[in-house]
Design a protein around this nucleic acid. Structure first.
Length: 939
DNA sequence: GTTCTAGAAC
DNA sequence: GTTCTAGAAC
């Protein structure tokens, strides 16, 4: 189930059987980004098997909002609890009668891969209604199948008479409830902690309705609930994985995917404080894994509300029995709690693994305080205390964090969102057919070996383990230091998870070396600087001060890519980007032509089909070049380089949410869920670890921000044209620093973006959007199928070093504009991979500009290693990371030159599966076929 | 940011 | 023969 912030007033078609206009995971983010005045009006979609959809209005607020739904020529008011049915292909618009209400539309998601699959699409249409009220409505309603777009009231009290009823027998109250609970579980909470605190405490008592109990007909255990995942009810016929119990509520939510063919199901326990990102982790895992997973969340297992531990146990048993893997989303604060779950796996001879989300306490508390839709109600300031209390309990338990010695086949310690992203990604390969290949690509000697080595270090797949010596024995059994010999089945289980563990190990190995290495690279005050002359301008300036060689310091966490920078994608709802002016279009067209010609020429070259001496440009190329050069001149612009520009190529992506990462796994899509304006950042998975204190970017900046901040990189805000690069410092503090030679802010060719921002009327290309604050254009040299730039128009913002806290609002606005464009791009190209938003750590082009890029990176303009790495390593700073840095430190500091060079020159590694290759042609060939790339989290 | 070129490496 | 790298110029 995905939720997307509905663009108020915009007309959109009922998205049935086709990918939603927004990325699945991102939609979830939207849902988090749209909290407006803590009042939400939710319009849920109810797809039916007979090809109809319904929208139902529910609200968690007390304002009893009313929404006007315009469908064809018959606009109607939709009141609380009411719903209307829509026909496939209908277009509808929503207008809130209360401008202060955000409108959310929850829609069954659709997996990209299944998007074009008729069967999948059909199965996806089985979702039921939500809330109890909706249930009643649904059961009584049957869409007016034949009615032409007329809205059929399906609510208990239809304003205008009862409409047709839903004939699908699955639309029973029970089914509706079930759906509701799924929806709750996956669209709101991120922390999934609610139950945690009580689970131990006793809230678990009951057991009553076994989660696994079969309850009558119901939609599948599918993942309808996963954040956007879609899935529809493919598994409809199966028993509710995870026990979607009869009562509809007590069950886990499945992702509707088929069980792994060659690997046994596993039980994955998540452990962590409320707000640590457990639900987000689960959501992303279900979304990105190719095999069946069931999410058991105590906070929502009972009809969408907090349930008991017994219900969780039952749901887990049911899931495993079905052959689905099961991720249990509870706090699991102490070993005793974890033991009962582990027993569920043990009694079936299956492996139990653990992911310990050990996020910073303050971060968890902040998330809890900020969220507004936690199923268990664990939200708001009043619950911050609970977080601290639980943290205290964990500390006293003597069994925190979870240890492999408890009987887990593996334990992944995650300290920030990048880690969580990497963990999600690692588990997402479990059971996939190509895990072996991926593991190999990640550089793991072998899956088994990797797993073993991880186990060798105390049975914990943490940094130490990852760095440990190669295993010499097979399986985790005899190699663990603190774990008794395991059974053959356990060893087999470890083997089954070998690829997963190998991927994690690879990530950890790099994670381990990255912080210190990067820190020391920082120019201003890095570690080295401290040693030599803390505060000394000379040391700071040296940039090279003793930087460790850092070769490969794992600066780029392969496995952590997730993070799409995009973290908190915000509601891109407002404002329709204005379409370019006529002049701009014309120019854009010319540029496009040029680009096209160039592309064609390059294609030929790269294909090696018709190679020619470089000294003999083709007619097309000459033409292109001529156009590029002449265009600017024609426009009377000074500077700009041909093509307008080159927009700083975008690049990157944010690898692991966070600086590298994704907010939570992939965003963690969730990570993004936070509304920048609210200062929340839950997301994890994807995007970066911006929130965590260990976020790579923070680490980097921490060492540098102290000094510095000023000047390195950017010229003074007031500067005009060029020539002042680095010579002026915003704060004017460092007179001793020399201009950073990396910045060519005065070079004519570097002014293209700035010229466009300051003089849009002279733009040589199509302007996708423009207002007083920003202007959006396509990157003239797109590094992916979709690549645009949102450029700040404030003359003072010549580089990211000029950004301050006061610019957070601008960044949020840039995010909105970007999201809007992404939404449109997705509508036009539904199958495109996830987008990410972010900045280059050392941009070449003058003027603050944010890259909005699809992570396919399939473009002839992406030619060399520098291009590749600027998108797929930490050279790319995810938006949310930048936002976080501004929030916490007030400004950004550029990375040290050595770090920059290291990032730019590191080996070519797939941002999806972490496979490394030698040449550009190889990486280009690989990414178009890599499934992991298609599953990347992001916008 | 880009193109172009030459030379090295594979 | 292909690919990468680096430098110059824009």
């Amino acid at each position: 189930m995905a939720t997307l912030l509905f663009p108020i007033g915009k007309i959109i078609p009922v998205p049935r059987g086709v990918p939603l206009p927004l990325g699945r995971a991102d939609i979830a983010r939207y849902s988090e980004a749209i909290t407006v005045s803590r009042v939400q009006c939710t319009v849920e979609s109810l797809n039916t098997d007979n090809g109809q959809s319904a929208l139902k209005l529910t609200s968690k607020g007390s304002q009893n909002p009313t929404v006007v739904i315009g469908l064809g020529e018959q606009p109607r008011e939709l009141h609380q609890g009411q719903s209307v049915l829509l026909r496939d292909g209908d277009k509808f618009s929503l207008i809130s009668t209360r401008p202060d209400l955000a409108i959310r539309v929850q829609l069954p998601g659709h997996e990209p891969a299944a998007a074009g699959n008729a069967a999948a699409a059909a199965s996806a249409a089985a979702a039921a209604v939500s809330t109890a009220a909706a249930a009643a409505a649904a059961s009584a309603a049957e869409s007016g199948a034949g009615t032409d777009g007329a809205m059929a009231e399906t609510t208990p009290k239809p304003p205008g008479g009862a409409g047709p009823e839903l004939s699908d027998k699955r639309h029973t109250p029970a089914a509706a409830e079930s759906y509701s609970s799924r929806s709750e579980a996956y669209t709101s909470d991120e922390g999934g902690e609610g139950g945690a605190e009580e689970e131990d405490g006793g809230a678990c008592g009951g057991g009553g309705r076994g989660a696994a109990s079969e309850g009558g007909p119901r939609p599948s255990p599918t993942a309808a609930g996963t954040a956007g995942a879609a899935q529809g009810l493919k598994a409809a016929g199966r028993k509710g994985c995870g026990g979607r119990g009869g009562k509809g509520g007590a069950r886990g939510g499945g992702n509707g995917k088929p069980p792994a063919r060659t690997t046994p199901p596993v039980l994955l326990l998540l452990a962590g404080l409320p707000g640590s990102g457990k639900s987000t982790f689960s959501r992303e895992l279900l979304r990105t894994s190719p095999v069946a997973w069931v999410h058991v969340n105590q906070d929502a297992i009972s009809d969408g509300k907090r349930g008991t531990r017994e219900q969780c146990l039952a749901a887990a048993r049911a899931a495993l029995e079905e052959g689905a893997c099961c991720v249990v989303d509870r706090c699991h604060a102490d070993a005793a709690q974890r033991d009962v779950l582990k027993a569920v796996a043990a009694e079936r001879g299956l492996a139990a693994h653990c992911v310990a989300l050990q996020m910073p306490l303050e971060l968890c508390a902040k998330r809890v305080a900020a969220r507004t839709d936690h199923p268990g109600g664990v939200q708001g300031d009043s619950f911050k205390k609970l977080v601290y209390t639980m943290a205290g309990q964990m500390k006293k338990s003597n069994s925190w964090p979870p240890a492999a010695s408890e009987g887990f086949t593996s334990v992944m310690d995650c300290h920030n969102d990048a880690d969580a992203t990497a963990a999600v990604r690692s588990w997402a390969v479990y059971g996939s057919d190509d895990t072996s290949a991926q593991a190999a690509g990640a550089g793991a000697p072998s899956a088994t070996a990797a797993a073993t080595s991880g186990a060798e270090s105390g049975g914990r797949l943490d940094a130490a383990a990852a760095a440990g010596p190669p295993p010499t024995t097979h399986g985790s059994a005899g190699t663990r230091q603190d774990v008794p010999p395991r059974s053959a089945s356990a060893a087999a289980a470890a083997d089954a998870a070998a690829a997963t563990l190998a991927m994690w190990r690879d990530y950890v190995a790099k994670r381990k070396s990255a912080p210190s290495g990067i820190m020391s690279f920082f120019k201003p005050s890095g570690t080295a600087a401290k040693k030599e002359s803390p505060g000394g301008a000379a040391a700071a300036k040296a940039g090279d001060s003793g930087l460790p060689a850092a070769k490969g310091a794992g600066v780029s966490a392969p496995g952590a890519p997730g993070a799409s920078a995009v973290g908190g994608v915000a509601a891109a709802s407002r404002g329709e980007p204005a379409r370019a002016s006529r002049g701009g279009e014309a120019a854009g067209k010319a540029a496009a032509v040029a680009a096209g010609a160039k592309t064609a020429a390059q294609d030929k070259t790269s294909a090696g089909a018709t190679r020619r001496p470089r000294s003999e440009p083709t007619a097309d190329e000459r033409s292109v070049k001529r156009q590029a050069v002449e265009a600017p001149k024609a426009g009377g612009r000074g500077g700009g380089n041909g093509g307008g520009g080159a927009v700083a190529t975008g690049v990157s992506a944010s690898p692991a949410r966070g600086a590298a990462g994704s907010g939570k796994a992939g965003s963690a899509p969730d990570a993004c869920g936070d509304s920048p304006s609210q200062g929340r950042s839950e997301g994890n998975g994807q995007g970066g670890s911006s929130q965590s204190g260990r976020n790579a970017f923070s680490v980097l900046m921490a060492s540098a921000s102290r000094k510095a901040a000023d000047g390195h990189g950017s010229a003074s805000a007031s500067g005009g044209g060029g020539g002042d690069e680095g010579s002026r410092h915003p704060g004017g503090a460092h007179t001793g620093d020399e201009p950073d030679p990396r910045f060519k802010l005065g070079a004519p060719w570097a002014q293209a973006l700035r010229n466009t921002a300051l003089h849009p009327e002279q733009a040589q290309q199509e302007v996708l959007y423009k207002d007083d604050q920003v202007i959006m254009i396509r990157d003239v040299y797109p590094k992916a199928k979709h690549h645009a730039l949102v450029i700040a128009r404030d003359p003072a913002l010549r580089s990211i070093a000029d950004l301050r806290q006061e610019h957070l609002q601008l960044l949020a606005h840039m995010q909105q504009v970007a999201c809007k464009w992404v939404q449109e791009a997705r509508t036009k190209d539904p199958v495109t991979v996830a987008f990410k938003l972010g900045f280059h750590a050392v941009p070449s082009m003058c003027q603050v500009h944010m890259h909005v890029v699809s992570q396919d990176f399939d473009s002839p303009a992406l030619k060399n290693k520098k291009h590749w790495n600027s998108f797929t390593t930490q050279f790319f700073l995810p938006l949310e990371v930048v936002q976080h840095e501004l929030e916490s430190r007030g400004r950004l500091t550029l990375i040290d030159q050595n770090v920059q060079h290291q990032l730019e020159g590191q080996e070519l590694r797939c941002h999806g599966c972490a496979k490394t290759v030698k040449t550009m042609p190889e990486i280009k060939k690989h990414i178009v076929a890599c499934d992991a790339v298609k599953r990347l989290p992001g916008l």
